[in-house]
Amino acid sequence: MKPLGYYLVLAGIVWAQSTCRQIVPICREKYMEDFSWDGRYWKAELYNGETTEIYYTFFRGLRYRLIPCGRSTTQAFPHLRIYNANRALVLDTRQQGDRSYWDLELSNTQLLIIELYYPTGEGCAALLIGHRSGETPEGWSAR
């Protein structure tokens, strides 16, 4: 006979996993629209200011949709810090306000590092990335 604590911990694990897993299809359904999703997503339980890192190759000529998914215990939106491959900070979406998703276009193909974090509170956060054919923005050379 196992102690009650064992079952409580087990129930907690199952609950946390299912909550974290449930948010991915919801966000996909709501925000992916006509972008293609390649099935990859990143999820993590973020506590005490923890962050999770995502390495991703972004191609020139495609438009990407970044969907940071979840809400912290303080109802904060998850945000993204975007770094180049040399770890120089390129953008922190927190400076741009809260949004359910961000679209991204690059003039050159790049490997970027994305840090997913909650400005306040803690909880499960996930990131989905979709892509579709894009148009070369004005002023960018079409080589």
Binding site: I82, L91, L106
Partner: peptide, 19 residues
């Protein structure tokens, strides 16, 4: 420079690299 010039307009982030 490996750091791009970045513009954000209505939720669209555009990164222009000069490399």
């Amino acid at each position: 420079s490996p750091v791009p010039s970045t513009q954000v307009n209505k939720g669209v982030i555009q990164m222009k690299f000069q490399q």
